[in-house]
Write a protein that binds this DNA or RNA. Structure first.
Lengths: 176, 176
DNA sequence: GCTGACATGTAAGCAGTTACATGATTAT
DNA sequence: ATAATCATGTAACTGCTTACATGTCAGC
């Protein structure tokens, strides 16, 4: 799965501008995908050159003009090909878990601070996903629901584990 | 957190060869970090050039010679600097969750297959983490325990969610 | 006049990956 | 012989990020 596949996938439903795409990345994909403007605009340009999408300039009032991109039949074909490829293994890169692994080179108060920060980050993520769930509840597809519920469940499990371990750490620290 | 920081971190404890480092990446960091030989060897070369590590060639019998790398005081300093930097937000890139989101462009049997495959992958990951837990139990540090338990808890939560949603999907499918 | 949301883009660089290339040694 | 494990490396490429650059329009 590349940025290109995701951009095509979003255009499958309706035409979007580069800016719109960035908004979707931030609102919906935050917990399992990321993409910057520096990736989006060059990708759109390349897709247009390849005949996978076409452009229409739309005048707006009250806002600057935008360039809307529509997927072509060629583009739909490419997206279907992506869906037929093997599912890639998920990639996680966690600085927090790495620091846990290297914990012996830090002191207990630092470890504790990192764990508390991670709990806060993840609790905020859970809040965010729950509010999305509430907002979309009506129109949501089964599969979108799966992606949301997995996010909520895994973050919740992480927070619970962290809170349990934090209590252990504090007990251990008080004894010494 | 870059590959460079992780390599230095591993050398904090004891000297290792490039090959040894790769083995650690595969055995211990699998679920939150990845690094190839193509990253490891150039990184070691650069670290040596920068005076952060030094090399010693070790003859082995029964095996090819290896180049062992030792961290220097300069190197320890750089690693401590990494530990003092802000914890980076974790990055997840999941092709599986993306396909869930784009589920409406696939059929139910494909979605079901993807979910079943993901359950299998994650169950294998859980088994793997549990066996590591058993193997290391005695010598494990508190922080290593945290990183293992988070892995086990989050994967378990994902598998449970997927199984629940899969049951829902099958019921829904049977009704239609 | 300035801030903030909306909007588009480029260029340089980075942190890797992928594919290739080589070779020792042991076990089958 | 030949596969498997151990071992080291390079070169080309890629898919992005970061920083920069520019501009519109609304509301305060």
């Amino acid at each position: 799965m590349k940025g290109r596949d995701v951009v095509l996938g979003l255009l499958m439903e309706k035409e979007l501008s580069g800016y719109d795409i960035k908004m979707v990345f931030e609102e919906i994909f935050t917990h399992f995908f990321d993409g910057s403007f520096g990736m989006i605009y060059p990708t759109l340009r390349q897709l247009e050159k390849d005949g996978k999408i076409r452009k229409e300039v739309v005048m707006q009032d009250g806002k600057p003009n935008k360039k809307m991109f529509f997927i072509t039949d060629e583009g739909r074909k490419e997206f279907q090909q992506y869906l037929q490829s093997d599912v890639e293994k998920e990639v996680l890169r966690s600085d927090f878990l790495m620091r846990m692994y290297f914990g012996k080179y830090s002191d207990v108060s630092t470890i504790q601070k990192w764990m508390e920060e991670e709990i806060k980050r993840k609790e905020a993520d859970i809040e965010d996903l729950l509010s999305k769930y509430e907002t979309w509840k009506k129109g949501i597809t089964f599969e979108e629901e799966v992606s949301l519920e997995i996010g909520i469940a895994t973050y919740t499990a992480e927070v619970e584990t962290l809170k349990r371990k934090l209590t252990q750490l504090k007990k251990k620290d008080a004894l010494e």
